[in-house]
Write a protein that binds this DNA or RNA. Structure first.
Length: 867
RNA sequence: GCCCGGGUGGCGAAACUGGUAGACGCAGGGGACUUAAAAUCCCCAGGCCGCAAGGCCGUGCCGGUUCGAGUCCGGCCCCGGGCACCA
């Protein structure tokens, strides 16, 4: 053990503490009936190579919570695993000619060592990787169950197609509409895919949000909007095609504006568009143009609104008025009916479209600005109001108009009220190699046949190297040639793999029983689930969390889980950002890592210039997420190597509250290291003889320490850890003020110092466990003869002593007309008259003869004199 | 474009239910120790005016509510996250 005579050496004490925990198996969690369990989980990492700052932040936050709840006496589980399938492994494989499996396993080994070096309280016995057959077997098993229930099914879906590489591209691989490797213009292509019917749970997923008190409002709101329940009316517009009567259906939330419809717009993929394009080359070209391009909604939504008439007309179902049918590039086939009614007077997009193409604008809602809709567009035009120019519906307000119109449409068989969801079914097929094979066999006679349980898992061969032109599995007969499980005839195995979101939608439950090879989940999952505290990046607020909620419901329906909500409390950490710099001396931008940039400051510390360490001038490009493309990643390992894990952990906690973005600063790390050195140095002086302190100073110091502790516990409860770190600093400051430098006279251990150090080390131990572990034992602060003597983690969490918090006097802030002018100290027992008199007395200068209108007193805090 | 957040000193931040804006740190300035440097310790520090006492201004911008607004309300600007195949 490192002696306190030596200065703080993080490396040796961290190694020593980690060895202690390993020897004692300190972080192993067992199912203990009757003891309150606490399942604390951070989102598992993708094994990309090495830990990045976001990981360190995520796992430090999780570890602080884990260690805190342990000390609060709960049975805590904190596991770790690997989200090990995915695209980057294939990219690395192509670049290095190494199979994704080897690359992935090497990364896992390296990152595991890094996590261990950070001293996280993880139960490694439960480690799992989603790319192992023992894990993904159960993806496949569940898929076959959902398939038989109709919750997994096949239909066509749209993908990005690179015509040169003849391969499907991920959205990420499409840059400005072109393939990332070939530069070819990307096309949309429809292919058969498997979907999970998440929409079957839309209503439940939405309604449960209201009861999820442990989730941030922000995330619940995002999910609510994503699910997107809207009430409206499905309206049929009759038309004739070659003498045949047909109906064009639309969904609208504004049936009250039906009389203001002046055109119809359909998506390029709509059957009407396809029909009309047959006889019209120009329209055909436009439809083709709309169908090309990327599939991303963000891109589609920002396209210039364009349209073309089909030459077809349909009739307003109530008036028979003829309405031209257009094809519009802003109409999405995936939402509603793939067609909309155009009401230019009361919808901004329709308005712009009508102006552009000279379509009539008919005002049918009275709004504050009047009964017309002159240019330019005003948001008021879209507000609810009373119907006008609408015949028998004139004078009706929104709901009454919708009700009346829906009733009339229903009578004609041309409409009814409908609830529409924005949520779409989840397409899980990926035309990629490094993922979980979809357990389906395609048989000419029997159709899609799920692989029987006895043949699971369908094992993914681990030795392939993709070449960028399609899925290598589709080129491997030994993989896809098989026999139909139903009829035994030759058949073809599905070569698509599953979206990696499938893997991550249930891993949290598998941590309870990763060793079970007979069942996906068992009773241990029912013990540990739900996760009590889930921690992860805000960027996962919708997809991952929504898919996991869907899975929990599906697993409950299979009898595998007892709960339908997987995460009771959710903490969404902010992203870690860094500055980026570039030089364009050579004509094209070269990004310089912030670590290699030196800045010049003026006398006030403001940055006035920056240059690269090699002397080249650099341009500051602002702050953003750490990325390879901007070369602004900061490697946490360098930080850990230099200062130790405790400093890295402390800095990351201290720098910002967990939910904020964290702007990286190398300089500030130094301050965290300095603080830990001060803790060490102060502790080292603990047993030096000290003189007896004056009673008054002891009382003030205890008041200070216990007040700070009270606030720190309050902050911990609301997960504001940065101020807990501040609190530790304040306690050390108070202790140093108390007896700094006065170690000459005798007196032995001072009880104020002993108590202060004991509180400090316990408060700090979840954040910086190694140094606290060491000092706690070295100073012998634990109760004699108890297990906590050897291990601060086993000590009880400190709570403030109510005696120490008692005060005889209170300081009141005194304001005149709301402006702070001073303060007065008054005995705690002072009554209102005394408080007022004392305040008026002290404010004579400001009141100066003016009549006092009233005096506002906030008990124990503030006095405001209004003159 | 749509949905969700955020904006407070040179920087990260704090401020409990509307009640002393800037705690705790970083960077900066001054000093002590040292042959020197590093390390450590002490002091100063929102802006403007003033020798000082003190005064005025100040939480992205504009307006409102209130005895009192960083905090509540309305409008705007900028930045970040998500938009269904990155994870």
């Amino acid at each position: 053990m490192q002696s306190l005579d030596r200065s703080y050496e993080p490396r040796s004490i961290e190694r020593e503490a980690q060895a202690f925990w390993a020897a004692k198996n300190s972080f192993h969690a067992d199912e203990v009936p009757g003891k309150a369990k606490f399942y604390c989980l951070s989102m598992f990492p993708y094994p990309s190579g090495k830990l990045h700052m976001g990981h360190v932040r995520n796992y430090t936050i999780g570890d602080v919570l884990t260690r805190y709840y342990r000390m609060r006496g709960m049975n805590v589980l904190q596991p770790m695993g690997w989200d090990a399938f995915g695209l980057p492994a294939e990219n690395a494989a192509m670049a290095n000619k190494v199979p994704p499996a080897k690359w992935t396993y090497d990364n896992i080994a390296y990152m595991k060592r890094q996590l261990q070096g950070l001293g996280f309280a993880l139960d490694w016995a439960r480690e799992l990787a989603t790319c192992s057959p023992e894990y993904y077997k159960w993806n496949q098993w569940l898929f076959t169950r959902l398939f038989r229930k109709g919750l997994a099914y096949r239909k066509s879906g749209v993908v990005n197609w690179d015509p040169v590489d003849q391969t499907v591209l991920a959205n990420e691989q499409v840059i400005d509409g072109r393939g990332w490797r070939t530069g070819a213009l990307v096309e949309k292509r429809e292919i058969p895919m498997y979907f999970f019917r998440i929409t079957a749970y839309a209503e439940e997923l939405l309604e449960a949000l209201a009861k999820m008190d442990g989730w941030p409002e922000q995330v619940k709101l995002m999910q609510k909007n994503w699910i997107g329940r809207s009430e409206g009316v499905r309206i049929g517009f009759p038309y004739e095609l070659q003498g045949e009567k047909k109906t064009l259906w639309v969904f609208t939330t504004r049936a009250d504006t039906l009389m203001g419809a002046t055109f119809m717009a359909v998506a390029a993929e709509h059957p009407i568009a396809a029909y009309a394009a047959k006889g019209d080359a120009q329209l055909a070209a436009f439809v083709e143009e709309c169908k090309r391009g990327a599939v991303m909604e963000a891109d589609l939504a920002q396209l210039e609104k364009k349209g073309m008439p089909t030459g077809l007309y349909c009739a307003n179902p109530l008036t028979g008025e003829k309405l031209p049918v257009w094809v519009g590039n802003y109409v999405l086939m995936g939402y509603g009916e793939g067609a909309v009614m155009g009401v230019p007077a009361h919808d901004e997009r329709d308005y712009a479209f009508a102006l552009k193409y000279g379509l009539p604008i008919k005002c049918v809602i009275r709004h504050p600005a009047g009964d017309a809709v002159p240019e330019p567009w005003k948001p008021a035009y879209a507000e609810y109001g009373t119907c006008i120019n609408s015949g028998k519906y004139d004078g009706l307000a929104y709901q009454a108009a919708v009700d009346a119109i829906a009733a009339d449409l229903k009578a004609k068989g041309l409409g009814e009220k409908q609830v529409q969801w924005r949520l779409r079914d989840w397409g899980i097929s990926r035309q990629r190699y490094w993922g979980c094979p979809i357990p389906i066999v395609h048989c000419a006679a029997c159709g899609d046949v799920p692989v029987p349980d006895k043949d699971l898992p369908v094992v993914l061969p681990e030795n392939l190297v993709p070449d960028g032109t399609g899925n290598p599995l589709a080129k491997l007969p030994s993989f896809y040639e098989t026999k139909c499980p139903a009829c035994g005839k030759p058949a073809k195995r599905e070569t698509d793999t599953m979206d990696t979101f499938v893997d991550s939608s249930w891993y949290f439950a598998r941590f309870a029983c990763p060793d079970n090879d007979k069942a996906m989940l068992d009773a241990r999952a029912r013990y540990w689930m739900p996760v009590d505290q889930y921690i992860g990046g805000i960027e996962h607020a919708i997809l991952h969390l929504l898919y996991s909620r869907f899975f929990a419901r599906a697993l409950k329906a299979e009898g595998l889980l007892a709960v339908e909500e997987p995460f009771t409390n959710l903490l969404t950490q902010g992203m870690v950002l860094a500055e980026s710099y570039y030089t364009d001396a050579s004509g094209r931008r070269e990004w310089i890592n912030p670590a290699d940039v030196e800045v010049t400051r003026d006398a006030k510390g403001k940055i006035v210039a920056a240059k690269a360490k090699d002397g080249r001038a650099v341009v500051y490009d602002g702050i953003g997420t750490m990325s390879k493309s901007k070369n602004n990643g900061v490697d946490p390992q360098a930080l850990i190597d230099r200062y130790g894990a405790d400093t890295a952990r402390f800095y990351i906690i201290f720098a910002s509250p967990p939910t904020n973005t964290l702007e990286w600063s190398d300089e500030s790390v130094e301050g965290s290291y300095r603080f830990l050195k001060r803790v060490w140095a102060y502790a080292a002086k603990f047993d030096e003889p000290r003189r007896t302190m004056a009673e008054g100073l002891a009382k003030t110091t205890r008041f200070e320490i216990h007040s700070v502790l009270k606030q720190a516990n309050y902050d911990l409860a609301k997960h504001q850890f940065n101020t807990v770190a501040s609190a530790a600093m304040k306690i050390l400051n108070a202790l140093e003020r108390f007896d700094g430098g006065r170690f000459k006279e005798d007196g032995g251990r001072n009880t104020v110092v002993e108590e202060g150090l004991s509180i400090l080390l316990r408060l700090l131990s979840p954040i910086t466990p190694h140094i606290c572990h060491h000092l706690w034992r070295e100073l012998g602060l634990g109760r004699k003869g108890s297990p906590e003597q050897d291990d601060v983690m086993l000590a009880p969490w400190p709570d403030p002593d109510p005696e120490a918090l008692k005060q005889d006097e209170i300081e009141y802030v005194v304001q005149v007309n709301g402006k702070t002018r001073g303060s007065v100290r008054l005995p705690k027992a002072a009554d209102r008259a005394q408080v007022e008199a004392s305040a008026a007395q002290s404010m004579q200068k400001y009141v100066a003869g003016q009549p006092i209108k009233k005096v506002i007193i906030v008990p124990g805090r503030l006095i405001n004199i209004v003159v």
